[in-house]
Computed example of a mutant assay.
Amino acid sequence: MTTSGIIVQRKWHTTAEVAAMLGFGLSKTKMLVLTGQIRSVKIGRDRRILPVWVDEYVTRCTTDAGEWAA
């Protein structure tokens, strides 16, 4: 996103944005958030997720998958 030539990086993602990033449905992503598998904070009525928390979830999933393959 740019504003007057300044690049602004988003700090938070919505649950719907995270679902799209991961290729999951919204219901599955909401369940992962509600069970704490993907960390989030509640701001008002909305949940917000830091990009690093999405990365943590992906890393955990790939580590778990690697253990199964061993």
Score class of each variant (00 low, 15 high):
19 A>G: 01
22 L>T: 08
4 S>N: 10
61 C>L: 15
16 A>N: 10
61 C>N: 10
48 R>G: 05
17 E>H: 01
56 E>V: 07
17 E>I: 01
5 G>V: 04
54 V>Y: 02
47 R>H: 15
65 A>W: 03
49 I>Y: 05
59 T>M: 13
22 L>D: 13
29 T>Y: 05
34 L>H: 13
62 T>R: 14
62 T>H: 09
50 L>D: 08
15 T>N: 02
66 G>C: 05
66 G>M: 07
47 R>C: 08
9 Q>C: 11
62 T>F: 06
22 L>Y: 06
46 D>E: 15
20 A>F: 08
11 K>T: 09
1 M>H: 08
41 V>M: 10
18 V>H: 09
63 T>E: 09
25 G>Q: 01
68 W>Q: 15
67 E>G: 04
46 D>S: 15
26 L>M: 00
31 M>P: 00
13 H>P: 05
29 T>W: 01
1 M>F: 02
65 A>I: 08
4 S>L: 05
64 D>P: 03
3 T>Q: 02
32 L>S: 03
51 P>Y: 02
69 A>Y: 07
14 T>I: 09
31 M>F: 00
1 M>Y: 01
17 E>S: 13
13 H>I: 04
26 L>P: 02
14 T>G: 14
22 L>E: 12
70 A>H: 02
37 Q>W: 00
66 G>H: 04
11 K>I: 13
61 C>H: 07
25 G>M: 07
41 V>W: 06
20 A>W: 02
66 G>T: 00
41 V>C: 04
52 V>F: 09
24 F>L: 15
38 I>L: 14
38 I>Y: 00
17 E>F: 01
7 I>R: 10
19 A>C: 03
8 V>D: 02
18 V>E: 12
27 S>G: 03
64 D>K: 02
15 T>P: 10
30 K>F: 04
37 Q>T: 03
29 T>F: 06
12 W>T: 13
63 T>K: 05
27 S>I: 04
70 A>T: 11
